[in-house]
Structure formats: C-alpha cells, structure tokens
Design a protein around this nucleic acid. Structure first.
Lengths: 201, 201
DNA sequence: CGCTGATGTTTCTAATAGAAATACTTCTAG
DNA sequence: CTAGAAGTATTTCTATTAGAAACATCAGCG
C-alpha cells in the first residue's frame, strides 16, 4: 500500500501535506484569476519577489501539476487569438480555496529564512582589505535602495485596487524593510571605519 | 573526458567552482582551528545562524569531503580520551586559505535571499481574520526580539577575543537587523488595525 | 530577411533541507 | 542502580529548490 503523507486539519479534512512553494502558487491563484504557468511566474516576480522567493519555471509547472492532481486546481487549454502558441490556464477550485485558507490560518509561524551573502563575506573580514569591505557594503546598499524604490513604485500601482489591499500592505512593509537594509549597511560601514581607525592609531 | 567546471581567478589559478555553502564551511575553517563536522555544525549554528543558513549535517559532511578532494582541507582521525567515539578533524590548507581569500575578495556581491513566511501569510490577508493576522505578527515579533537578544548576548561573548572582531561586527549588524524586524512587525500591525478601522467605519 | 525579445513549456542537473538510522557515552531522575 | 534522555559523531535517504538550457512560436524592427 502506497503511503501518502497527509495531515488532518482542524476541520477534520485530510489533505496532502504540501511544501511552502505549493502554497505560494495556490496563494497566487487564490486571487481568483485564471493563469498560465508563465503568468504565475510573472506575478510572483512582481509581488512576491520582495519578501519571498523567485520560483523557477520548472517548479511552478510541476507545482501546478501537483495541485491539479490534488484537486486544488483545474486547467484547460486556451487557443490564443492571434495564432500565438496555445497555453494551459489554471483556476483554483473550491477545495483548493478551502485548503489555502486553512493553511494560511493554521500553519505554524515559521521563522523567515535569510541567506545574507554580503554579511557572510564581511564575517570573513580577516581575509579582506578594508577597501573590499567598503565595496561589498556599497554594492549591497545600492541593491537595497533599488529594491526599496521598486517596492514603493509597485505599491503606488497596487494601492488603486481594492482587492490588493493586503498585498499593498506587504509592499509597504517591503519598502521599510529595504530602507532598513540600506541604513544597516550604512551603519556597518561606519563601524568598520571606526574599527580600522582603532587598529592604526 | 570528464569535464570539471572551473573558474580562472584574477591570480590566474584555476580552481573548481564551488557553491556558497562550500565557501561558508571553508570560511569556518579559515579561522585556523582543527574541527570535526560536528564542531562545524555547532559553530555555524552559533554564529552564522543570524544571517546565513543552518546547514544540515549531511551537507557539512559532504562539503568536507569535497573540500578535501579539492585540496582545500586535510583531515586526520583523532582517538578521543575518555573512550568516546573517534572523530575525523579537518584543517584548512594553504591552498584552501588562498581560495577562500580570493572568493571573499572577488566574488560578485549577490543579493541576499529572503523567504519570509509570515509575510507570505499576510500577503494572503483576504483569506484571514484580523485576529489571525495579529497572531502571525505577534509571533514573528516575538521571534525577532528573541533573535535580537541572542545576537546581543553572543556579541558580548565575542567582543573579548581580538580574532573575532569581524564576526563581532556582523553580530552587531544582526542585533540591529532583528531589532528592525521587530519594529517592522509592530508597524505593520498598526497598518492592519488602521485598514480594519477603515473597512467598518 | 535575419535578429531580438516576448510568450510558453519541458527537461536536466546540482544544491539544499531535513529526517532518520546508527553507535557510543554521560548525565539525571526515580 | 537503572532506564531514559541528551550529547557527541557520522551516514544514508528522500524531497525540495534553484538554475540553466532546450524547445517552440510569433511579433516587431531595421
């Protein structure tokens, strides 16, 4: 007998246990639109990118298949008007809606995952010249400011639509988050300069 | 003929291209101590955890093998005093030292990777009750404050040692980072309360 | 007419995460 | 005094995730 991992939710329904990425994809569908894998990639690059992953196509397409298998989404082929390639579009089902809702409400609050390459480099400061540390921090600062601006711009675009009020809030959060990243880089730069002054008085 | 991916560094030496995790492990060894896989796991949980990954044992052990293969580390078996199990300890080689140094100095500054589960949940606010949003944010706030405190404590411990001055700086950064995360959660909570007031005036 | 770029999907490989198995020892509470 | 929990130490297995590349079609542009 093939064992399928499953969890029993508070509402008693047994549902397959899915990884975070599946929920993210299903979450994108939960706004109600009928979307292709390609659309989903674009949407996630657009909004989720600021605080959650940039999924690869391969993952999106395989998640979609899994979601359809699980009965959380249905798909149909769409022949495009102007002769462009046919595509398969997905729509969330009632069951899928119920499943994401349950997940969003009841999943444990896991800590965010952070992999901060620039900090890893600076942590190895004993291998660097001060000039290289400045360089790493300057580039990171620049990156943070760029992301901050984009979050701000995207927020302006999202504000208009009533349905996007929560995404708008998270964009606001992102705008502040990247502002903070920028300032933290600045502060660390100052710390490094001070440390350096202390070494050669 | 087996093709091996390799990169030519600025100094002309051809070195195997390694993933970030390898560099992190080699970075841990670059402080000069002779360490076992188990030790490395503990050290990384201790210091790297605040801004970079918590590696799994399986990864650490396989990275160590790869590093030894590449000539960046050597190992020897150590019989333990009090009858506890023998262990294999690793030490960085001159070549390894040169390789991490080059990596730390010359690798491109990649953007940090963030997967913020709590934000993903709130982004799906249309599926939640306000009470559940408060809950998610409160837990996240708590997590951030705990991490902030730990970073602060660890920094106190690291400050004493001259060799740890750069790790100390990154712990200081981490302390500020988690303070900011905590405050950002607070701010978003306020935003949500305001949004809610606006919905039912 | 060939080039670039956008849409759209699939395939492959490598990297990463995480649990669990194995093995031995020391500490601790009943 | 002893069973069980917790610490040290490593390996194996599986699933998830990342990323490049291949494949395919068409629109617009010079």
């Amino acid at each position: 007998m093939a064992k399928k991992k499953a969890v029993d939710d508070a509402d008693g329904a047994e549902r397959p246990a899915l990884p975070a990425t599946s929920w993210a994809v299903l979450g994108l569908l939960s706004f109600g639109e009928e979307l292709s894998g390609y659309d989903l990639k674009k949407w996630s690059d657009w909004s989720l990118r600021f605080f959650y992953w940039s999924p690869s196509f391969s993952q999106i397409y395989s998640e979609l298949k899994r979601l359809e298998q699980a009965g959380y989404a249905t798909s149909r082929m769409v022949a495009q008007e102007t002769g462009t390639r046919d595509k398969r579009v997905y729509r969330i089902t009632g069951e899928g809606m119920e499943a994401v809702r349950t997940w969003a409400r009841e999943a444990p609050v896991d800590p965010p995952v952070l992999k901060h390459g620039p900090m890893l480099r600076l942590w190895l400061g004993h291998l660097l010249e001060i000039q290289q540390m400045r360089e790493v921090l300057a580039r990171h600062r620049e990156f943070a400011e760029t992301m901050r601006q984009r979050a701000e711009e995207d927020m302006e675009g999202a504000k208009a639509n009533e349905a996007w009020s929560y995404p708008t809030l998270t964009l606001k959060w992102a705008e502040r988050y990247y502002a903070s990243e920028r300032d933290l880089a600045e502060a660390m730069l100052a710390d490094i300069e001070e440390l350096e002054r202390g070494k050669r008085p």
